[in-house]
Amino acid sequence: MEIAFIHEGERPAESASVAMILPGNRLIQPKEHLMKCRTLSKEMGIPVVTAPFAYEGGAAMAWIGKGQEILQQACFPDDGFQKGGDVNVFDTPWGPAALCCDADIFQPQYARLAAFKGCKCLMASTARIRIDSVCEYMPEDLPACGDRGLFFVGPWASAQANGIAVAAAGRTGGALILPCALTPRGSGLGESGFDPADLARAHREFPVYESMNPKLYERYRKELEA
């Protein structure tokens, strides 16, 4: 699976298997955006993931593929916006995937629930982060790196905490994040595509679910739901 991160109106490289449209600074109006994405998908013969757009008093994004349109409402939007209630995990030729609209990527329970539902690749889009030259990032930068830090707290952490791939589209670019064990430098960064079958290897390196503590979660269910 190779993901191209493009601005609206651009065309992805021929080698891309999915195109993700980078988010705008403001929620875009859906009608024209969806039409453009449908056209692009048809012309290129690949699925297109839209940028977040205004939808029924809230925000949403969509996966537009051949005969397959999936809508995902934002579940943790800004105050005053309508909230979605669940994450939809859907089948793609590359395995189960899910969409993650705007600030939802900073809520760790969102990616966790997606992973529990079988998601192997979470496609997140938010203008709150700026992604540029992610391969240059070093963990030492984190304490002082402002919204680059948000990149680690949101998309990067979601990939590591759940052993899944996260395709993150930000204001100025996008990045595919994999579990650390799957990338040569161990950073989880720097890859343009991935084979979902490799995620099993990452899981062997860090068997995140086997170390969970159901008794703890049961005892503090109220706190986890709060």
């Binding site: 909230k83 979605g84 209630g85 600030a103 969102y110 707290v153 949101g154 739901e225």
Partner: peptide, 13 residues
């Protein structure tokens, strides 16, 4: 960024 709530979602989670 990580402190928002959605009771319906959080119950499901």
């Amino acid at each position: 960024p990580g402190c928002r709530t959605n009771p319906a979602f959080d119950r499901r989670y």
